[in-house]
């Protein structure tokens, strides 16, 4: 079983507990206009060009080969509360490859960092093999979700709804994009949705970072934010506090690992 990985980052400090290596799987069904990993969007390998030269983003891996690489770090990851995080792109877009890798990992805790855009049975199968889920939630309103990410959120909401039954702890991660996701309406909707979900550890709010557009040129793409990048963010946590939903404003951690 083969898959395409566009990056492997060791000592990934924002992708889960402990000492951790993050694998970025290439390809994503969403097109969020604030995406900071444009090289993760297209499923095929592509060449990135910058003043520093060219770099191939995306390499084909055999599942066994990738698992072996990760297992070689197990002696450092396991005793330090860590493991492996699968991110993307959207890791579930290559779920067969992902499952093949997971089956070969040697007692490594896995964090899945996902948009949740996957068939509910696929989602359940992968999630049940993970220790912790970083579940993105951008917008609750279906029309707005289509408008800003190019995809419907029915699967995403259904998958969040089935998380308590799957018994795997999870964090809801909300990218705060000015005037798009940080509206009081959206934050209240997210807080209501999160309220009372078994297994929810907390909601992480990830403030928008201006570096989001940094890699587009290298990918041969234009970064055209259709929202006011400089608008002050709404950082009002009261919708969560009011319902007693644990919430955390993450440092500036929604930028990609460099």
């Amino acid at each position: 079983m083969r898959g395409i990985v566009f990056d492997i980052i060791e000592f990934a400090v924002h992708d889960g507990p402990g000492l951790r290596t993050t694998v970025f799987l290439k390809g994503c069904p969403l097109r969020c206009s604030w995406c900071h990993n444009p090289e993760g969007l297209h499923p095929a390998p592509q060449i990135l060009t910058s003043p520093a030269g060219e770099r191939l983003a995306g390499r084909v891996w055999e599942a066994s080969e990738l698992a072996a690489l990760l297992n070689r770090q197990g002696d450092l990851l396991r005793p330090n509360g860590g493991g492996v995080t699968f991110s993307g792109g959207e890791p579930l877009a290559q779920y067969e490859f992902l499952l093949a890798v997971l089956a070969r990992l040697d007692h490594l805790d896995v964090v899945l960092d996902t948009s949740g855009y996957a068939l509910p049975e696929v989602y359940a199968e992968v999630v049940s093999r993970c220790a912790l889920i970083y579940q993105d939630l951008k917008l609750v309103d279906p029309a707005a979700h289509v408008r800003w990410t190019g995809a419907d959120n029915a699967w995403i909401l259904a998958n969040i709804a089935q998380l308590p039954r799957l018994g795997v702890p999870f964090v809801l991660r909300v990218p705060l994009v000015p005037t798009v996701t940080d509206t009081p309406l959206n934050l209240r909707a997210i807080a209501r949705l999160a309220d009372g979900l078994d297994g929810l550890l907390r909601v992480d709010l990830l403030p928008y970072h201006r570096a989001a557009g940094g890699k587009y040129r290298a990918c041969g793409m234009d970064f055209v934010p259709d929202y006011p990048e400089d608008a002050p963010l709404n950082l009002d946590l009261s919708p969560f506090d009011d319902l007693g939903v644990p919430v955390r404003l993450a440092g500036e951690s929604y930028d990609a690992p460099l």
Binding site: G18, L19, D75, L76, D255
Partner: peptide, 25 residues
């Protein structure tokens, strides 16, 4: 280490773990 490693509260813990890993390995 790029200094963006140090964004967020957990950074000190992570670097401490890296030092421990240095000794463990």
């Amino acid at each position: 280490l790029a200094d963006n490693v140090f964004r967020g509260d957990e950074a000190l813990d992570k670097v401490a773990l890296l030092v421990r890993a240095f000794a463990q390995v």
